[in-house]
Amino acid sequence: MDIIVDGITKTYGLQHAVDNLSFTVKTGEILGFLGPNGAGKTTTMKAITGYLVPNTGDIQVGGISVTRNPAEVKKHIGYLPEHNPLYYDMPIIDYLGFVAGLHGVDKKKIESRVSEMIRVCGLKSEKHKKIRELSKGYKQRVGLAQALIHDPEVLILDEPTTGLDPNQIVEIRELIKNIGKEKTVILSSHILAEVEATCDRILIIHNGKIVAHGTAEELRRQAHGDELLLIGLGNTERNEAFLALKALPTVSLVDFSDENSSTFKIQSQPGQTSAKHIFNLCVEKGWYITRLTPVETKLEDIFREVTKN
């Protein structure tokens, strides 16, 4: 089921939590939702699940409008809300059974679904405990299990890995990845590495607007469209090398990388590469290259760049 978010705006008083936001997620795709706190991630997710009604715009899940027919849409969505609210006074098995019943899972199938979810989410050893007695990681698993209990086609996960230890994070990521092969998944996170590892596409929002959008690769390219090289030279004098490099036709910017050694940061002209020219220059002058590395922009840098005010 595709999710089409079409120009939604949600205001709280005068503040625009979400401002004319549009995007699409296709079946079999995992979309990572990034943004600083208060960017509008949670509001958008609540709108998709039908919990909040946007002031304007519409959302379609599998061709059904959330604003016009929320009851129908809710059947196909599995949702893990932020802070993972659960009925702490219930045992895990009862709770999952209750949620399955609400979703209209066939009475005869409830038991087998519940035990399958307990297996998939690794809750076997804890299954008779009350939710109150569980550690944070296990509570998070229960939250995930209740979102998956009716085998939904769309999965909305608001920060699914908070409070988990590194092993659990890896397990949950694998789980989400597997589920994401056939289903439509949106997940939000603060952890950039996680989004990069799990998601097919990344959407960065800031102040309720999309500021960057694409695969991790595409984002890197967008953020640093121009090639950036780190180069170290031997058998040369710093300033001479600096001027010679600057004179190359494909180079737009040269910068010393540190105080003393002959290491430079070289930015190329848009769409061009300078490696060949640098090499030729070195051959001509009799310098040798101690290092030549393309500088990868980290997702953190992109994130910081697009979300600064």
């Binding site: 699940t49 919990y51 809300p81 609210p85 659960l86 702490y88």
Partner: peptide
């Protein structure tokens, strides 16, 4: 506790 959100996002 926020469980109302959990409840109302079910059918």
């Amino acid at each position: 506790s926020g469980t109302i959100e959990m409840l109302l996002t079910k059918p």
